[in-house]
Design a protein around this nucleic acid. Structure first.
Length: 271
DNA sequence: ATGCGGACCTGTTAGC
DNA sequence: TGCTAACAGGTCCGCA
């Protein structure tokens, strides 16, 4: 479900309720997420004051004076700020209860998300250590993409979805960025010219920024921390628009499965 | 090293 | 109407 804009929307939503507040305790109802929630987390996090909430790739990092909680929403996860009296519903796997009388509640039907604890330098955690640059950061541009793509035969769509190349680009925005850049999703990464890689880097940046401005994309069930959906779905040019007319040329949008993921593109506009 | 497919889960929808 | 199969926004891992 959540790609970078949805995770960042969540971060911005929860941050004001967490920073400067103390976590009274963790109420964990289901430990079996992508990885089991470590039993040590319960006592480590209890009584800790939250220094801030950061995002790295699609991970949310909750800094405390004793360590960092690493949260991921997986495919179907969402985090909400609720009144502590709210009864948990189905798939509400954990709460971080705050001294403010509110709590941070995680819901995730598919349980692909995670909640981990790192006492040391969180940037060296195995999940984070090998990640590529942030697409909205300074060290991501067309030259970088072009250099990394030398000799690569992988489809350009899978290439930009590889978190070792660049983080945060999921299935929706990969299709959207390639449409904006006019590049066919199945073209070999190594056969995209520098000029077009520059356009692609710019397209990735702009589509993520546009989506962020709309609070993310809700296709089925994404909600932000306030329970509201994102509104970027109305601006999607190709994703989930199989058979509908291309906004540029009117040709029917096509779909193809690659790397077990549905991909949408315009045959006429993307080469 | 690279690229691919399977795996982890549940819920919803398309198709017979 | 009811059953089954396919698919869903992520990403790690093992194999060729």
């Amino acid at each position: 479900m959540p790609e970078l804009p949805e995770v960042e929307t969540t971060r911005r939503g929860i941050e004001p309720f967490l920073t400067g507040n103390t976590i009274v305790r963790a109420d964990i109802r289901e430990r079996r997420l992508r990885w089991p929630i470590p039993t040590a987390l319960d006592r480590e996090i209890r009584g800790r004051s939250v220094g801030g909430v950061r995002r790295r790739a699609k991970y949310l990092l909750l800094d405390t004076d004793a360590g960092t909680a690493i949260l991921h929403l997986g495919m179907s996860g969402s985090l909400r700020i609720l009144d502590a009296a709210q009864q948990p519903q189905k798939h509400d796997h954990y709460d971080l209860v705050l001294d403010s009388g509110r709590l941070l509640r995680f819901n995730d039907p598919r349980r692909f998300g995670c909640l981990l604890w790192e006492q040391g330098n969180v940037d060296r955690h195995p999940l984070l250590a090998t990640l590529g640059p942030e697409p909205l950061g300074r060290d991501f541009d067309g030259d970088y993409l072009y250099q990394r793509a030398r000799g690569r035969k992988i489809a350009i769509k899978a290439f930009i979805m590889d978190a070792k190349i660049v983080v945060g680009v999921g299935n929706i925005y990969a299709s959207e960025a390639l449409f904006r850049a006019g590049i066919h999703p199945l073209r070999a990464a190594g056969r995209v010219s520098l000029t077009r890689m520059i356009a692609l880097a710019s397209a990735i940046r702009s589509v993520l920024e546009d989506a962020l401005r709309q609070g993310g994309t809700t296709i089925r069930d994404f909600v932000g921390s306030d329970g509201l959906p994102g509104y970027f779905a109305q601006d999607l040019a190709v994703y989930d628009r199989d058979g509908e007319p291309c906004t540029q040329c009117g040709a029917a949008i096509r779909s193809v499965v690659t790397g077990q993921r549905s991909t949408y593109y315009c045959l006429r506009c993307q080469k």
